[in-house]
Design a protein around this nucleic acid. Structure first.
Length: 151
DNA sequence: GCCAACGTTGGC
DNA sequence: GCCAACGTTGGC
């Protein structure tokens, strides 16, 4: 089993939104490296650290789990969608997504600043300068340290 | 709102 | 294939 960190802007889709929906397709990713992680490496049952980005208090807000493996992201074919991609077609999809299901909502956000000052998390892409990738692998050790920061 | 860092596009 | 220009991300 693998562990991941996935970023979402809570104004667009938050951990509470996932809690309400129970499951959701992780659509709208338009970065090849992030796509490749979803398409090639994510497996059912993998655990996701749900990260809130571009907001007042960025940080890990809760946990989710991969509930369906890679399949084409339907928004790429929808000309009304912000994520429409005119170069994608049904026979040759360009963008893939997974489905995630809600697991847990932390009582308090594990903030980015907390993560930055916690020993053992120095190697997380999240704390590297200039790192913007919205999906990152997380090691078992990093995952376990994050869990110890729950309140 | 600013801006550094990064990814993508497209002309050559 | 190079690289300048542009667009996006995301913390602050």
């Amino acid at each position: 089993m693998n562990y991941w960190l996935m970023k979402s802007e809570p104004d667009v889709f938050s951990i509470d939104d996932l809690k309400k929906k129970k499951k959701s397709g992780w659509d709208g990713v338009r970065n090849y490296q992030a796509r490749n992680y979803m398409r090639d490496e994510m497996k059912i049952g993998d655990i996701v650290l749900f990260y809130h980005s571009s907001c007042e208090v960025p940080g890990v807000a809760g946990l989710a789990r991969i509930s369906r493996p890679s399949h084409p992201d339907p928004t790429q074919f929808d000309s009304n969608s912000d994520y429409f991609d005119s170069k994608a077609n049904l026979k040759n999809p360009r963008w893939f997504m997974v489905e995630v299901e809600f697991v847990e909502n932390f009582n308090k956000i594990i903030t980015l600043s907390k993560i930055k000052e916690t020993k053992g998390l120095e190697a997380m892409p999240l704390v590297q300068k200039g790192s913007r990738l919205s999906i990152n692998p997380v090691s078992l050790a990093q995952y376990q340290i994050i869990l110890t920061l729950r309140e």
